[in-house]
Computed example of a mutant assay.
Amino acid sequence: MSGEQNRTVSGSEVNELQAGIVSFVREFGLHQAEMTPCGVPLSVSQAHALTEIGNAGSLTQSDLGAALRLSKSTVSRLVGQLLEHDWVQRDRGQPDDGRVVLLRLTESGTLLYGRLTQARRDRMFRLLERVPEAERQTVLHALKLLTEAACD
């Protein structure tokens, strides 16, 4: 963002955005360490990792880290947790290159991924249902703008 754009943002707008995001995070349940906002008893980072692997079918640990925007060491710990719970397995990616290791969901990981996907969809439906129909596109557009603005 350029300096010119920064000067047009008031302190009260910054305060309002901060209070709004903090309030949303709390109401949505993102601050609960061991429960997803959709009510599945696992951490948000585990849920995101399962979702990325499940959506892709398989991922390298490096690709998972890039998708989640997490450091290498954080992804290593996260994958360790997923392996410990038997939600993912490591497979050799290519017969001719033993260095490539892919993460894939196990049977229990696939079941959890399905449960998580449905719970998330149900939660999003209930959330969007509470937004007046005439304002839904505005909310979705604002969310897209905020997401783009958050990208560094």
Results as ranks from 00 to 15, higher is better:
R123M: 10
N6G: 08
S45M: 10
A149K: 15
E52F: 11
R130C: 06
K72M: 14
V14Q: 05
S76C: 12
G3D: 14
Q137G: 06
V100I: 14
R123W: 05
A67W: 01
G57K: 13
D63V: 04
S23Y: 05
G98D: 14
A56C: 04
R120V: 13
H31S: 14
K144F: 12
G114S: 08
V79L: 04
K72V: 11
I53M: 05
L146M: 12
L140S: 05
V40S: 12
A47E: 06
R7A: 14
L70F: 09
L82T: 08
L102Q: 13
S73D: 15
V88H: 00
D122M: 12
T51S: 06
R130K: 07
V79K: 02
A49T: 07
I53A: 09
R90I: 04
L105P: 09
D96A: 15
S71F: 11
S76A: 15
E133Y: 00
G29P: 09
L116Y: 05
R130Q: 07
D122H: 08
E4H: 10
V101R: 15
F28P: 10
N55T: 12
R121N: 10
L146I: 10
S43K: 04
A149Y: 14
N15R: 14
S71Y: 15
R7D: 11
E129N: 09
C151W: 09
P41N: 12
N15W: 10
P95S: 12
D97E: 11
D63R: 14
V131Q: 04
E84Q: 04
A67G: 09
E129K: 11
E34F: 06
K144E: 14
L146Q: 13
E148A: 14
E16T: 00
R130M: 10
E107A: 13
L116Q: 11
L127N: 00
F125K: 03
T117P: 02
Q89F: 01
